[in-house]
């Protein structure tokens, strides 16, 4: 965690996306950070920030990640990182962990994505014929967190858009994504489709539209940057 403030002046586009996403977390929230990029959001939270991070393998109140030498063999997050407890942390079994998720106690989840549709559909667990490791807890997180946001690069490694009119891959959940943080922009899912909210500094709305596989609705007036 950084010293007392949200990170400013981050240069790398991916790190800037993660730093911007961290500002989505409001004081007092219960939050689940998905495996991969979303987990890195922790590094951008101010020290002492009042938030309860949940991990689906059975912990509420995740503290700082520990190096190999300091790790507790019985204490990992769902991505396998060795983490530490905070004063007030609790542990529980997998049934209780998902009772918490399904009953609406998660204010926010941040998930990775292969594809997001303009309707808020999310595909992030299977590429038929190539990659089908199972969804783990992603279906319940995407379907039941009170707010679902996605962190993803705007395009895949080949430059193809990941924000689409419709998902082509098997869905994780239908219509639950509210906002997408990418290396190029912050995009909201609205009843009209994708709406541009913010631009990464140095990026134009035209570039974002060209990298998006659906219509991008622009706000009136100046577009804030991050």
């Amino acid at each position: 965690m950084s010293d007392g403030n949200f990170s400013e002046n981050v240069q790398d586009p991916r790190a800037r996306m993660v730093a911007r996403a961290a500002r989505e977390i409001a004081p007092g929230m219960v939050v689940n950070l998905g495996i991969g990029l979303p987990t890195k959001v922790i590094d951008h939270l101010p020290e002492g920030f009042p938030v309860c991070l949940h991990t689906e393998n059975g912990m509420a109140g995740i503290g700082p990640t520990l190096p190999y030498e300091a790790a507790d063999r019985n204490l990992i997050d769902a991505g396998g990182a060795y983490v530490s407890p905070l004063p007030g942390t609790s542990y529980f079994d997998s049934a209780v962990s998902f009772a918490l998720v399904r009953s609406g106690r998660l204010d926010l989840t941040m998930l990775g994505a292969f594809e997001v549709a303009e309707s808020g559909d999310l595909a992030n667990w299977k590429i038929p014929g190539k990659f089908s490791p199972g969804a783990g807890g992603a279906i319940e997180l995407a379907q039941k967190a009170r707010r679902v946001v996605v962190l993803t690069t705007h395009t895949d490694r080949k430059g193809n858009p990941k924000l689409l009119r419709q998902c082509t891959l098997p869905l994780t959940a239908r219509g639950h994504v509210a906002r997408i943080f990418t290396d190029m922009a912050v995009v909201d899912v609205t009843p009209r489709g994708f709406a541009l909210v913010e631009l990464a500094s140095g990026t134009t709305a035209k570039e974002v539209q060209e990298a998006t596989g659906a219509t991008l609705h622009l706000p009136a007036g100046d577009i804030p940057t991050f």
Binding site: A135, G137, I139
Partner: peptide
């Protein structure tokens, strides 16, 4: 789905026959 596996097992341990859920509707699961 992870929590559904946990809950199906919990139900088995509680002497129940099944659970009802909306988790996974509209997915291939």
């Amino acid at each position: 789905a992870q929590g559904i596996l946990a809950e199906r097992i919990r139900a088995g341990g509680a002497g129940l026959q099944a659970i009802l859920t909306d988790i996974g509707l509209e997915t291939e699961l």
